[in-house]
């Protein structure tokens, strides 16, 4: 299935579904952010991280526990 990056589909629908209002300038900012973030987000979603599961309650002051 073809992936759509089109801001004019995603943004109005997303804002409307959350009941969010945006003026013209905000819409321009949101459009620019979408153009910048969405392609890498799709890449991230497609990234194969193998069996890496999120660490439950990670202690970020320490290395991860050995697996």
């Amino acid at each position: 299935m073809e992936v759509s990056n089109r801001a004019d589909d995603f943004i109005p629908a997303g804002l409307a579904s959350l009941g969010l209002e945006a003026d013209e300038i905000e819409l321009a900012v949101i459009g620019a952010a979408h153009a910048m973030f969405w392609p890498p987000i799709l890449e991230l979603l497609a990234l194969d991280v193998g069996e890496a599961a999120p660490e439950p309650r990670p202690d970020l002051s320490q290395p991860p526990p050995p697996r």
């Binding site: 995603f10 943004i11 997303g14 804002l15 959350l18 969010l20 945006a22 300038i25 905000e26 819409l27 321009a28 900012v29 949101i30 952010a33 979408h34 973030f37 987000i41 991230l44 979603l45 990234l47 991280v49 193998g50 890496a52 599961a53 999120p54 660490e55 990670p58 290395p63 991860p64 697996r67």
Partner: peptide, 28 residues
């Protein structure tokens, strides 16, 4: 600032979960 805050609301939760997986992976 206003536009970015609203855009953040549109980001998929699945991406944040994947981000947490990437965090675990990079820490390892």
């Amino acid at each position: 600032g206003r536009g970015l805050l609203k855009y953040r609301m549109l980001l998929p939760a699945a991406a944040t979960v994947k981000a947490l997986q990437v965090r675990a992976l990079m820490r390892q």
